[in-house]
Amino acid sequence: MRGLPSLLMLPLMLAACDGPLSALSPRGPVAAEIAWLWWAMLAGAAVLTVLVLALLAMGFGAPRPARARVWIHGMGLWFSVAVLTAVLAAGLWVGERILPRDDGAVTVHAHAWQWGWTFTHTGPDGAEVRSDNLLHIPAGQPVDVLVTAEDVIHSFWVPQLAGKLDAIPGRTNRTRIVADSPGTYAGLCAEFCGLGHARMRFNVEAHAEWPPLLAADDADTADPDREVRP
């Protein structure tokens, strides 16, 4: 009966694996690589947990002979090192594959402030187009996002398209996002940045046509002197 609450919680926990802010329901190749790595790390952690629980179980009950060569050297040392090495190799492999490359990808800018985002991309006429809390990208092709910050450290994260990247005042960081198909994807600030952090959400609109023709309400021409805070 003790396992019943956990069993009842299972559908709720599994439901968290899907949704607009779940990294486990990727909508692009970069996010798919990260989701794969997450599952690989979960598998590695599960294997080691089973080992530890087995050792714990052996500690109960009547004393029994346990060979140090098997349990300390074999399982405790080499088995754990093998699992951790596999996970590290997977991390290096995925880390290299999701890096931005010099391959002519579309570049957009994301500027974070307390508490919102200002995004900039190049419009059809070549002018800079700015939009608050709505990032426009092309669908089906890589996009490099240059991430900056106005005041404190924030973090740019679109879970279904890519991993997190910190927005640090005085630095420009670059991350790559890819959306497989046109649509709207949810993003958020992933670094606590003050009282308004929780409402520092934004959307990413992936367009089939690029650059998109936007309605006047959706964007305004960039003005460097414009006050970005609401």
């Binding site: 090192v81 090495t85 590290l88 290096l92 880390g95 290299e96 890096l99």
Partner: peptide
């Protein structure tokens, strides 16, 4: 050896 070998291969 384990924690620093990525300096050889990682970007």
């Amino acid at each position: 050896a384990f924690t620093l070998f990525p300096v050889l291969i990682a970007t």
